[in-house]
Computed example of a mutant assay.
Amino acid sequence: MPAPQPAARDRTLAAAGLVTTYAFMLGFSDNYVRVVAAESGLWQFHLSRGLIAMALMLVLARLIGMKLRPKRLWAVAVRGGLQGFGVLIYFAAIAVLPVPVAAAGLFTAPIFVLLISALIFGERIGPVSILAVIMGFLGVLLVLGPSAFSGVSLVTTLLPVAGGLVYAFAMIATRRLCAEEEAGALVAAFFIALGLFGIIGLIVLQIWPLQPEPGPAGFVARGWVMPDLTYLAWMTMHAGVVALGTWFCTRAYLIADTGRVSVMEYVMLPAAAFWGYAIWGEVLGWQAWVGIALIAIAGGLITLAPKEAGAGLPAPQPLP
């Protein structure tokens, strides 16, 4: 019947607005991570972020009845640890790399999901998915090109792609281990994992201290730094923006087609580039832009192509 079509279009437009708002919110907050990274460390950052986010989630659980208790603790813990480790790598990268470049590495996760599904779980992938994998890795090579990273080491440039690989295992764990879990339990496990990673890193650096470089370059090697009001203000802003933005994106998945919303999430890349230019005056070269576009197209093909011989992906997860 033709009558419901305008309503469906309105819901898709509403979802697009929510995802765009989410992307610009995260692009803004992620670009300011280097302000925190100039004086504090990665491990303290994630401990602070995890504590603030869990406090917000406990309030939401009380106000709206969000369920935080997992059905299978070990499965949720494995999935939360993988997702937390992938995002930890991502934030290590954005302290020294342009945010859209780091985000492009994390958005390679659907490509890795296909490869892992084929190589480890024996799932057969079709020609469209194979084309998407080729395009995606060509995009990665272009993004990692020397014109985009003058003065940055190869190990540093590979960090976002490593984050995408770990995040892919988290996506697979979501489908294979946590299909029956509540969203609140999965998000809570993710933030708990971040907090635990932060504690472990701080303990290791307390026992075996390193001499960090000044500024954002020392983000990973820097241990505990006594937080001041500026740090607490930035961390509260970041956690609040992430929590609200993730709610916007989750709401978009509830009111529109999952595949379409997943493709909409790639607006995160130009949004991050916009804020990088507006705040820091960063301008990406054409090579990096072409690589980002290829990664986005590859992700869109994987998500929207007809499911080919069991190569279905898990429901996409908003980028925390």
Results as ranks from 00 to 15, higher is better:
A188G: 04
E213Q: 12
V283G: 09
Y277D: 06
Y277M: 13
Y266M: 07
A293I: 03
K307Y: 05
A293K: 01
S262H: 11
F274H: 10
A272F: 01
G198F: 08
L202V: 05
F274R: 09
V187D: 07
L196A: 13
L294V: 09
K307A: 12
L269Q: 02
W286Y: 04
V263K: 05
Q211F: 00
L196P: 12
Q211R: 02
S262A: 15
F190E: 07
P216M: 06
F248G: 13
V261A: 00
V267I: 15
V261H: 06
A239L: 05
L186N: 07
G245N: 04
L194K: 10
F190L: 11
Y253E: 03
G281N: 07
M264I: 04
I199C: 14
L294K: 00
A278V: 12
I192C: 09
Y277S: 08
Y277K: 15
M235E: 10
L244I: 14
I203D: 11
L205C: 04
G184A: 07
Q206P: 04
V204G: 09
L254S: 11
M237I: 08
L269V: 06
I295M: 00
M268R: 08
Q206S: 15
L254E: 12
Y231K: 14
I255V: 10
R260Y: 00
W224Y: 15
P212W: 02
W289H: 08
L194G: 03
L232C: 13
V242Y: 06
A233H: 05
I203R: 08
V220C: 06
V283H: 13
W208P: 04
R260N: 05
L313I: 02
M237Y: 11
P209V: 01
E265H: 15
Y277C: 03
M268A: 14
V242P: 11
P212I: 08
F219D: 06
G198I: 02
A296S: 14
W289P: 08
Y277R: 15
A309L: 12
G218P: 11
G299A: 09
P212R: 04
W289I: 14
A271L: 04
L202R: 01
V187R: 09
Y253C: 03
A293E: 03
L304Y: 11
A188P: 08
L205M: 10
G201A: 00
P209T: 11
E282K: 00
V290H: 00
Y277H: 13
A185G: 06
W280I: 10
A278P: 03
L294I: 00
W247Y: 14
I207H: 11
F248C: 15
P214I: 08
A271V: 03
M237D: 04
G281Y: 03
G299I: 07
M226C: 07
K307H: 06
T236I: 13
M237L: 15
F191L: 09
Q287E: 12
L229K: 08
A193H: 05
W247Q: 06
V283L: 12
C249L: 14
I192M: 15
A193M: 07
A189Q: 06
V225H: 07
P214E: 14
Q206L: 15
A293G: 13
G291S: 02
G281R: 05
Y253S: 07
